[in-house]
């Protein structure tokens, strides 16, 4: 009984929940108006795209991989949709093409990683530059704007009191959660992260799973790009610039080990919630953008140090 108690206590999720509760307690002391539902709902509008990309990123990091190219895939997909729309194609077709482009970009990453055995960090560093470069090239760095109202409504309207993007996120989250916990695939993802070679010998289709995960990451990035374009009514080659660092920060704060094999989707969600609330509150209360960078950087380091300490406690007891 005591062992279970200790184990629960040392889970990153428990630690994060405590942090989040502390944060909310602090906020309610400093500035309770920030906690109104109305405020929270509106401020959430730009977290959903990041959250959608964080789901495949969690799985990729669980396999001891990383995907730095998500922001560039976003930009390439956004530009695909924008250029097609400008060329006179219908919006559903443009969206379909954008999703296809993103999926293809992700597939290429996966192919290089699984089949050519290039380290994911290296290959996605290269495709990060290439994909955004292609987006800049075909758009000549010009923005596309004036999308039809039917499309922009997807980014601006709300369903049942939540933005449309939130529902997209929930749907993806629930289905991925189900697959990870109810299907062998979930175990395989963790197995690859723990020991790639051993997984290959035990008959897991490592290559297929890796290609699948990176492809999924490309698809999710394209989806996020479309939601972004719909919300801001602009497609441009700088869409998603730097989002990869935000996503990776959230996943890692959420207790997913960068070496793979350890971490959960729930942890990622808590990580997202923590950095979102911290960022918004710092900006809300102090009106100084440069603080946010310092707070987020330290939060990342400190939370990982503490998680490490807790895990160590658990191992030694």
């Amino acid at each position: 009984m005591k062992a279970i108690f200790l184990r629960t206590l040392s889970l990153p999720e428990t630690f994060l929940s405590c942090l989040i509760i502390t944060l909310f307690a602090l906020i309610s002391q400093l500035d309770p108006s920030f906690l109104q539902w109305e405020v929270q709902r509106s401020l959430s509008s730009h977290i959903w795209e990041l959250a959608i990309i964080a789901i495949p990123m969690t799985l990729i990091i669980l396999t001891a991989g990383i995907d730095l190219s998500v922001g560039s895939i976003m930009s390439l997909s956004a530009i695909t949709a924008g250029m097609l729309f400008q060329a006179g194609s219908s919006m559903p077709l443009a969206c379909g093409a954008a999703l296809l482009t993103g999926t293809l970009g992700g597939f290429l990453n996966g192919f290089f990683i699984a089949r050519m055995r290039v380290h994911p960090l290296i290959i996605t560093l290269a495709t990060m530059a290439t994909y955004r470069g292609i987006a800049e090239g075909i758009s000549q760095a010009k923005p596309v704007s004036g999308f039809p109202a039917g499309f922009t409504r997807l980014g601006q309207d709300e369903w049942l009191n939540l933005p449309f993007a939130a529902w997209v996120f929930f749907i993806i989250f629930v289905s991925v959660f189900w697959v990870i916990h109810r299907r062998a695939l979930g175990l395989h993802v963790y197995a690859i992260g723990n020991n790639d070679t051993a997984s290959r010998f035990s008959g897991i289709h490592v290559d297929r799973i890796l290609i699948g995960l990176y492809t999924f990451s490309g698809f999710a990035s394209a989806l996020a790009a479309l939601l972004f374009v719909a919300r801001r009514n602009t497609a441009k080659a700088d869409v998603g610039m730097g989002i990869e660092l935000g996503v990776i920060t959230a996943v890692v704060i959420g207790g997913v080990s960068i070496f793979g094999g350890r971490g959960t989707l729930v942890g990622t969600c808590l990580g997202l919630l923590l950095i979102h609330e911290t960022r918004e509150f710092v900006s809300w209360h102090w009106n100084r953008d440069e603080f946010i960078l310092i707070v987020l950087g330290l939060l990342l380091i400190v939370s990982v140090v503490f998680q490490k300490l807790l895990r160590h406690k658990q191992n030694s007891s």
Partner: peptide
């Protein structure tokens, strides 16, 4: 007086949204 330190238009938009709520 506040704005994005990295000059990102997206951040600027979300700041406007924050001030609207305030």
């Amino acid at each position: 007086y506040d704005g994005p330190t990295d000059g990102s238009p997206e951040k600027q938009a979300s700041m406007i949204e924050q001030y609207t709520l305030k």
